[in-house]
Design a protein around this nucleic acid. Structure first.
Lengths: 247, 247
DNA sequence: CGAATCTTTATGTATATACATAATGTTAGC
DNA sequence: GCTAACATTATGTATATACATAAAGATTCG
């Protein structure tokens, strides 16, 4: 076998040693060769096997642990984790970006934009503090000329005062917020509902048609920035989520 | 200021230096102090600031880059990434685990389980190779005595031959697969639809009631293991997804 | 036999060092 | 003024080393 000094040079397809070790271990797990619960070789064994330093395999395995493929237990070793299909990365696109990407023309219409005080009685507004100064926005999104989604949105003006001066007659509030509000945390809720008479009219569908409802609350440092409810036509839209070990 | 040697000891709440640096940078980003596009201090600056080695800050920043909070450019520096709210971690629970966790009793009923050959004409089966040997399973899930979801599932027997001998009259196929098939990759599709007459009967709802449809294709090494379609009562179920920087 | 103690050991964290690499900024030359 | 060559520099990868820590396993003692 080649000495460790030449190993780097003989690496296939010019991958780094780190990437090669990671891909190797990942393959063994995903192919089923190393089933859940299997104890993977100790760091010093891998180190000998790949002819490298412990720090190198340590970083690889720590990465796999962060990705959820492996669980580590001191003194005992590192084990292939139980698969947990139930966590997947969901793509929740900015509609204005997603529709053109599909090859359809995007359209937008502002229905109203009012400044007022939040009313905690309304369950929709309970996400924001009672009496908060909010912007109440209602709008529609179109794809290929047809209505795709209705949007109801509240923006907390104490957190995002600049929003009061924004012009939402041409720019959708979601797009504006993405460009004006830095990193946040968010929670989404996805459900199905039958179109009410008002929704049906706004979406050009029959009353009772199935719609996908996406609610999102976004906050920063415990202050709610925005709460949105988007109602999508069920026949025109669906969401895709993927799970793969690279995250 | 305290010398680097005493820094470790004075660490607040017994966090490691790594965690302290990470939390510090994360806070600056999430609080808006460092907006998207902002160049964070160079590694040698942070190294001086925290009185530690470059390898330490390097690992922290590499972790933040892996989490998507930071983008790194050689020679130029490290920059706060543009927020991309549209990726969030979706929890897609194993129903048998989720229902008891909600405090309701879980129920399960097998409707049928047949071995046959896949038919590529059926769009539902196009995910599996034509003519493949499959197990065709249909079942129902109950929560608190009420029907919650209908499930249609195909399992590829060439990939999971053991499934042919499994007893799905008491164990839901999803649960069985989770326990018998090691790590896989998966794609999910979420949509809303109106209950057909058959769905309505199976779910004890009115025909046309909105339902959440979750389709999942699971594979390993390019071979499809299973394809499922679960139809949930829209009034009883919804999905939750979260985005937060720790992943 | 059972509980408490000690030893062993694999992982966890941190450091100092070395060289590779890619992209920026500068300079030289036409 | 434009391009090509060069130097600079921040990140990228890898190593050898050191000590901390948690937990499994062996041992001791009541």
């Amino acid at each position: 076998m080649a000495a460790s000094a030449t190993l780097k040079a003989t690496t296939e397809a010019s991958l780094t040693l780190h990437q090669r070790i990671r891909a190797d271990i990942e393959n063994r797990i995903l192919s089923g060769e190393w089933p859940p619960g299997h104890r993977i070789p100790f760091e010093h064994e891998l180190m000998a096997q790949y002819g490298c330093a412990r720090m190198t395999v340590n970083k690889v395995i720590a990465g796999l642990a962060a990705a959820g493929l492996i669980e580590r237990r001191r003194r005992a070793g590192s084990f292939v984790a139980q698969p947990r299909i139930h966590s997947a990365v969901l793509q929740i696109p900015d509609i204005q970006v997603e529709i053109p990407a599909r090859g359809e023309t995007y359209g937008y219409e502002l229905i109203h934009c009012r400044r007022r005080l939040a009313n905690a009685d309304d369950p929709l507004e309970s996400a924001l503090a009672d009496g908060a100064d909010v912007l109440d926005i209602r709008c529609r999104h179109f794809a290929g000329g047809r209505p795709l989604a209705l949007e109801e949105r509240l923006i907390g003006l104490s957190v995002v005062p600049e929003a009061a001066d924004a012009d939402f007659s041409t720019v959708p509030p979601g797009t504006w917020l993405l460009n004006h509000v830095p990193w946040t945390e968010a929670e989404h809720r996805i459900s199905a509902l039958n179109a009410t008479a008002r929704m049906a009219e706004g979406l050009s569908v029959a009353k009772g048609a199935a719609c996908l409802c996406l609610e999102r609350r976004t906050w920063r440092a415990n202050a709610t920035i925005t709460y949105v409810r988007q109602i999508f036509r069920g026949d025109l839209y669906d969401l895709v989520a993927r799970f793969s070990p690279q995250g």
